[in-house]
């Protein structure tokens, strides 16, 4: 009796949690399929589903280009951050040197600054490098919050790899670079997928830097583009278009997470428990 009751509570909580997390997305889809005044009736489903909003977001602005911008920025950030941090993780995780802990905590410290605190300094940096209104400025600035995170996760993971493996490769005549790329890298799949995906999501969703460092519509990434979607007049907020655009840019993330979900869990817990 007690057990059955507990199970009910468990499933009730599960359902509440499910609704709480999924409802906003459901509502976005719902809204994106409505048109005109239907928007203001708060119906649980669209009375007359229409794809017109999805068509119009691509027609009224370079939304396709903006998605490609986001893809370019996010993929570049992931690739750069991972290759930098795999090398850094080898040094930080496997080699004893003076000041290693200090360096690790400095890297962690960098990621703790609120974005707004580094914004103006970053802006000066971007301008002096001539990267204003250029996607490379976003790649550069996103590394600030992705690299510390990827370095930390990969360092923890790298530490767990058996020392004898490295020594065997060393006896076989492998240089540190060969050890990292040919022995360790193939073993770090789960950690790379996890950190890469989280870095991708962070870069994909970033708003503040993207808003500040880009000017023209062609250089915008999707979060900024969506925020700046405007209606026919200054008094109209085109909710349906905004929701349609949001759905379009969320779907790829969901697909990615679904594909890699097993690996994400094994990667996230990799440093925690041995085995």
């Amino acid at each position: 009796m007690n057990g059955a009751w507990r199970r009910w509570v468990f499933y009730a909580l599960l359902i509440i949690l499910f609704i709480y997390t999924v409802f906003p997305f459901y509502w976005a889809i719902n809204t994106s399929l409505m048109s005109g005044s239907e928007l203001f009736e708060a119906r649980p489903w669209p009375p007359d589903p229409a794809w017109s909003n999805y068509v119009s977001i691509f027609r009224e602005q370079p939304f396709g280009r903006q998605i490609l911008n986001s893809v370019f920025v996010a993929v570049s950030v992931v690739l750069l951050a991972l290759s930098l941090s795999v090398l850094a993780a080898y040094a930080l995780g496997r080699i004893q040197f003076r000041g290693r802990r200090l360096l690790l905590f400095t890297i962690l410290g960098v990621s703790m600054f609120p974005q707004i605190a580094v914004l103006s300094g970053m802006f000066e940096l971007v301008r002096s490098l001539g990267l204003y209104n250029n996607l490379l400025s976003l790649v550069l600035s996103y590394m600030i919050f992705t690299v510390p995170f990827t370095v930390w996760v990969l360092t923890t993971f790298m530490r767990e790899l058996p020392k004898e493996l490295e020594e065997a490769a060393f006896v076989d005549g492998a240089s540190p670079f060969v050890i990292v790329t040919q022995v360790f890298l193939p073993l770090m799949g789960p950690a790379l997928v996890t950190t890469g995906l989280l870095a991708f999501i962070a870069a994909w969703n970033e708003f503040l830097f993207a808003l500040t460092f880009t000017l023209s519509s062609e250089q915008r990434t999707v979060p900024v583009a969506i925020a700046l979607i405007s209606g026919a007049s200054a008094f109209e907020l085109p909710w349906a278009n905004i929701m349609a655009a949001s759905v379009v840019v969320t779907v790829p993330l969901i697909v990615l997470v679904l594909i890699f979900q097993r690996r994400i869990v094994s990667g996230l817990t990799a440093g925690a428990v041995k085995g």
Partner: peptide, 14 residues
């Protein structure tokens, strides 16, 4: 001019 056999074998798993 040495080769070593480790306690844990240390074979490359991949």
């Amino acid at each position: 001019g040495i080769a070593m056999v480790f306690q844990s074998y240390a074979l490359y798993p991949h």
